[in-house]
Design a protein around this nucleic acid. Sequence first.
DNA 1: CTGAAAGCGCTTACAG
DNA 2: CTGAAAGCGCTTACAG
Lengths: 352, 352
Amino acid sequence: MSAEDGEGSSHQKNVRPDLKELARHLGVSQTTVSRVLNGSAKHYRISAETQERVLEEAAKLNYKANVLARSLRSKRSHTIGVMVPEISEGYSTAVLGGIEDVLLLSGYFYFVVSHRHHDDRLREYPSLLLSRAVEGIIAVDTPLHEDLPVPVVAVSDHHHRPAVVNIELDHVLAARYALEHLHGLGHRQIAFIKGQSFSSDTRARWRAICKVAADMDIEVNPNLVTQLDGDGPGIETGRVATATLLDRGVPFTAIFAFNDLAAIGAITVLREAGIQVPEQVSVVGFDDILSAATNNPPLTTVRQPLHEMGRAAASTLLEMIHKEKSEWPKHPIRMLPAFVERQSTQENHVVS
Amino acid sequence: MSAEDGEGSSHQKNVRPDLKELARHLGVSQTTVSRVLNGSAKHYRISAETQERVLEEAAKLNYKANVLARSLRSKRSHTIGVMVPEISEGYSTAVLGGIEDVLLLSGYFYFVVSHRHHDDRLREYPSLLLSRAVEGIIAVDTPLHEDLPVPVVAVSDHHHRPAVVNIELDHVLAARYALEHLHGLGHRQIAFIKGQSFSSDTRARWRAICKVAADMDIEVNPNLVTQLDGDGPGIETGRVATATLLDRGVPFTAIFAFNDLAAIGAITVLREAGIQVPEQVSVVGFDDILSAATNNPPLTTVRQPLHEMGRAAASTLLEMIHKEKSEWPKHPIRMLPAFVERQSTQENHVVS
DNA sequence: CTGAAAGCGCTTACAG
DNA sequence: CTGAAAGCGCTTACAG
């Protein structure tokens, strides 16, 4: 088992050599090669010449370390897990884009899993990710049921578990933007579409709305509050919620929707009921997804900096992975919304 | 080193036991435990009783195999790589959703990397993915520069490398849908917005359009052909392409755009130029992204079954991974488009 | 400055 | 029916 492979292997194209083979070609030990390739050459005072020879040969033979073996031995997988409700247009995707920006620059790869709010998946995935040796987890709009043995960053979760760092929007500011806008336009009978009960943002945002409304002396009429229901596409659930609102027969001149999809759905239902937007009812969305700008009419909405939130989540997680627990961020990382005024809102002309 | 850990380890919560520990608890060999847990129990005729005991204890101790170690030894990582141009609303995301549907059911995880059409990333990523021991790669709208030692499925690539299976839309049918629709509405001066040169679909789709146009005796006037340029968001590039068209001063009554984003951009430019859609110019998009339905006006478009294409890609790749090369699909897998008629097109009333 | 050897946590011939 | 031992391809004490 020692002489038959020199010739055979040099014939094979596309075969990635392993450390042993590379070391044999060079006539040095695997240890030395490994050290050079891992950048710890100077620490071990490996001669400049050896170093150069190793680098050259590695490039020539197109050597690439097997990350599995490396991870198994070193306990560093350079992999994280990302949990999202689903892969689809909108929220999760925008956050994922930001996460990716940061991770790939750092040499980290990530697994994405989507749970679609299924309870079994929510419980199972963290464990599956851990089996794959992720060094940390980013949970996007995803409630976590247990403490995990790796750093965790939660985007838009508000459970504030110890050992989980939250990235969260300033919902009070968001609510203030929307309500001041509507109030300034003369709206007093404002209807609200709350989010689904499974969305972590729902409660936080609603609390913020109630607080701001109280500050501003705006009445929150329970008969004008409705909630998204079901986990289907947002437009349809927005339609249902708006239809419910209309059925109650309580007059309103504006709607503040939980998200843009719900706002878009609301507008279609209003229109079908012969109610013009924004002439008779103003509608404010939330998120500023792509469709918001191209919708008919273009949506006035509160923009979440989703891409930025993804970036913040990834860089925070990387920081946590590389630092002592005592140095982890002690408070949620707060992100600022922006108000985008388009054409789905206008001055209230309805006499109440 | 043999007696001090019985008590210690049972105190630790959240510590995942390894095979060795599980075997020790049970008083059997790691081999046996491994066999039971991998479902090869019957093949090795392990007694039903042992089997049950193993399963029970594994559940009790919450044993989960270390996937890194398993993969390293067995050469099966149960991981694939997915290359996409970018993570953002629209095309890639929809395909990813389909891929995920299939993969997660099969116990496979996936890495996503986005290259943003950077040449260095395009060349580097396949190798990085291979270092992570992926068993196969799905390339979404991504040109591959070299042959890979693992199965590859390409969605919307048209290079037809040997050993790469393509999932492709029937572009001729797509072109026929759009052109018959416009022709039937009386349009004769039809402008075309081609895709970016880096998109694999651009050439295939354009060839199909030319073929169908020839079949139908529709003139393709070079002065009415323009092309998306730049890798920015689609709406803006669509605006630029349409402005170019307008500048040429050659009259047209309809536009067939490369994708919905370009169509949406086109409509905004036309409108700013005082041209009504669809009254004066009809616009047909491509893809049927979410915004298409909520756009003003709602977009008539050719729908690509993106989610289905993702599913097909994943199941084909899994099949290739598990079968002999001689049994791999020998032809591209063709997907059918659908025509969605909305309100951005109408009968041509312009006298030419 | 460099290397031999152990070991990461599994699976899998091989043996009985 | 079951187990001891080798080995996947690396990194890392330990030794010199």
